[in-house]
Write a protein that binds this DNA or RNA. Structure first.
Length: 690
DNA sequence: GGGCCCTCTTGGC
DNA sequence: TTCCAGCCAAGAGGGCCC
């Protein structure tokens, strides 16, 4: 409470002191920065903005959280505390039993990596304050700029205010990846199984190399750093310790171009940890630091052990275990297996807008990007999450779990549109899409036999279960370097096998005309744009497919009656539902109206007769469609309307297609039992001939 | 009550 | 002049369903 009083006591005179956004954890090279001046400038430049208001909201939330915890703490009785102390003591003994001092870990961190690479490529930048990034956000600042308080993740316009002579250099990931690759070639010589944490950081188990070459850990680190400098011209810092958590802390101690070795000795570890500020530990950020400090007065790792009963009493067992491990200086010492990716996403910030059409356009782009990224990595997922950031910086996420795995932009867009529609109207400044809940096979191997969408089929294979990828050598990636995607922060430690499929990344698409049809990517987008209205009307892609192969009698694309409002559409659909297939007299109830297309309304109801068939009843749907088509043909013949040739032609065309499908299928799969092949598959196969 | 799903928060880089 | 990112993972808590 005293701490809080002192803060609030200065609030009125120096309000920026309580604005924690600007300056929460000094980076290397910022020790001599006039912290108060930086805080004041950042505060003044941010004040009144929507961003600032949101930060204040978050601050208030954090304070509330701290207050709640204080209340909970005050409710703990002596008996409770005694109980939790016993639990904590037991847990400490158990955790201590897991201590492993047999390995020596080295953490390498390149010094101001992006900025250093840029300076290397343009020596005129040397000695001048420089930041990589732009006016909206900077990625890295060199040490000259850091002296002014400029740092990563700071908006450029604020950085410029702090350092008026600041030079901005745009990011060039290609360049950074190249230099990152060079460093990794060096890392491999010391630990072939090194863990890349990002483009500029890595963990190496140097136990073996030290033993084999009878070198001390410090010598190994020295040699490795020299080698990095020789190969790249860049400097790095290193930390050596018995585990990765400590090694990371150590690499920061003598930055830049320095190293620190913590001996593999329990006493040395405990001494080191005793005065280590909790914020230096990976996993403890701004919020956790405040909670521990304000509620329990824990500022050093040692404090975690001193307040162990409270931690066990007020946090979940998982969180309490983490805190106790920190207090004991424990960390991971094993070399983990490459973990599989859990999700894939993309998001874009833009000028805040309420324009529905513009927002849908953004969604189309995101769906396209996500689909392409998924195909590149051979992933199919089931849970789609839409992320929105409103103009007031409020972040919303909305998710939906689909019945089948997918990676197709059509599927993604279809479901994302529904999620977005439910959130509108809203003023949005960021939109993102994430796919998670991948099929276990990864690499696009569907575990769901019902997976039938166009793009999925292309990736996953045909109905026989044979992967298309089987036809080409599977590209196994031993080196995780090449797996990095073009962002600074992607987790390159993950190793993926990828199949060399769809190298051209063409997307097949169904053209809205009688003829068959395969469009390339550039056309896809245009068509998706055209169909935004349809998506909003809950007309799904099954309809598109149905219309493509069995187009509307007038030959035009007709997903819905163009002049129908959603309300009207619903109404007419209901009307149709009242009419049985054979009731066909009168315009309203007739399934024979040549101007009316067959649609699966809301993905289950026939627009002509109201019959209900779930989306996965593909064969039944096809038969149902055939019925209507034959019905229409019969009517045209009997009425003498001169449309017969057209319809007959279409039937003939379809018959021809189906026979081709059969032949192709037979050719590809030795034993084809299916008399019907899903339309998605057909197009996937047909497309192979284009 | 357990499992699953969704939402939100936190944290790292 | 310019006005606060984009990616990933993990944990917690609440709602719903069987």
């Amino acid at each position: 409470m005293e701490n809080e009083k002192s803060v609030s006591g200065t609030d009125s005179a120096r309000p920026w002191q309580s604005y924690h956004t600007a300056y929460t954890n000094a980076k290397a090279g910022m020790e001599k920065v006039d912290k108060e001046k930086v805080q004041r400038i950042v505060y003044e430049m941010s004040k009144g903005s929507k961003y600032f208001e949101n930060e204040e909201k978050k601050e208030a939330y954090m304070k509330q959280k701290i207050e709640n915890m204080r209340v909970q703490w005050s409710k703990l009785t002596a008996s409770d505390l005694n109980h939790f102390q016993k639990i904590a003591d037991k847990r400490i003994v158990e955790l201590e039993g897991t201590r492993d001092l047999s390995r020596i870990w080295l953490h390498v961190d390149m010094d101001a990596f992006y900025a250093a690479v840029e300076t290397l490529c343009n020596p005129s930048l040397k000695g001048k304050p420089m930041a990589v990034g732009g006016m909206s956000m900077i990625s890295t600042a060199n040490y000259e700029a850091r002296k002014f308080g400029v740092r990563a993740a700071m908006p450029g316009f604020i950085a410029l205010k702090l350092c008026p002579g600041l030079i901005f250099v745009p990011t060039d990931f290609k360049k950074y990846t190249h230099y990152s690759d060079l460093t990794r070639e060096v890392f491999k010589k010391y630990d072939p199984n090194f863990l890349a944490a990002s483009l500029d950081e890595a963990y190496l188990d140097i136990t073996s190399v030290g033993n084999e070459r009878s070198m001390t850990a410090g010598d190994v680190a020295e040699e490795l750093r020299e080698s990095i400098h020789k190969e790249t011209g860049l400097t790095c810092s290193a930390g050596v310790a018995p585990n990765r958590m400590l090694a990371k802390v150590c690499s920061d101690i003598n930055k830049p171009n320095g190293q620190f070795v913590l001996p593999n000795d329990r006493m040395a570890v405990m001494t080191f940890i005793s005065s280590l500020p909790i914020r230096k530990v990976g996993g403890i950020g701004k919020v956790t630091e405040h909670v521990l400090k304000d509620v329990f007065e824990i500022t050093t790792c040692e404090g975690m052990l001193q307040k162990s009963s409270f931690l066990c009493g007020l946090f979940s067992p998982t969180t309490a275990d983490f805190f106790l491990s920190v207090g004991l200086g424990l960390g991971r010492t094993d070399t983990p297996q490459a973990t599989l990716r859990k999700s894939i996403s993309n998001e874009r910030t833009f000028s805040a807008t309420k324009d529905k059409a513009l927002l849908y356009k953004k969604l189309v782009d995101l769906a396209d990007m996500l689909s392409n990224d998924m195909k590149k990595e051979g992933l199919c997922g089931r849970t789609l999450t839409l992320k929105l950031k409103t103009s007031s910086f409020e972040v919303r996420t909305r998710a939906v779990t689909l019945p089948t795995y997918t990676c197709s932009s059509e599927d993604i867009l279809k479901h994302a549109s529904k999620l977005l529609k439910a959130e509108l109207p809203a003023s949005v400044r960021l939109m993102g899409l994430r796919m998670s809940n991948f099929n276990e096979g990864q690499n696009g191997v569907s575990l769901d036999p019902k997976q039938k969408t166009l793009s999925e089929f292309m990736v996953t294979g045909d109905a026989s279960g044979r992967k298309l990828g089987d036809q080409v050598p599977s590209h196994s990636n031993d080196n995780d370097d090449s797996l990095s995607v073009d962002t600074e922060t992607s987790f390159s430690a993950d190793t993926w096998d990828s199949i060399g499929l769809l190298g051209t990344h063409e997307i097949l698409y169904l053209h809205h005309s009688d003829s068959m049809l395969c469009l390339k990517k550039e056309e896809t987008k245009r068509n998706l744009d055209l169909r935004i209205d349809d998506l909003e009307n809950n007309v799904d892609y099954h309809n598109t497919v149905a219309n493509a192969i069995n187009p509307c009698p007038n030959g035009a694309s007709q997903l819905v009656e163009r002049d129908s409002s959603p309300g009207k559409l619903k109404e007419s659909n209901q009307d149709r539902g009242k009419n049985a297939i054979n009731s066909g007299d009168g315009e309203a109830g007739s399934s024979l109206n040549p101007n009316r297309p067959l649609l699966w309304m809301n993905d289950y109801k026939c627009s002509l007769c109201g019959a209900e068939l779930p989306p996965n009843f593909l064969e039944e749907r096809q038969e149902h469609f055939d019925f209507h088509l034959a019905e229409r043909l019969q009517e045209e013949e009997s009425s003498g309307v001169n449309q017969t040739p057209k319809l007959e032609q279409r039937l003939k065309h379809k018959s021809h297609i189906m026979s081709q499908i059969g032949q192709r299928k037979k050719h590809k799969t030795s034993a084809s039992q299916d008399k019907y092949i899903p339309i998605d598959m057909f197009f996937a196969k047909t497309s192979q001939n284009f």
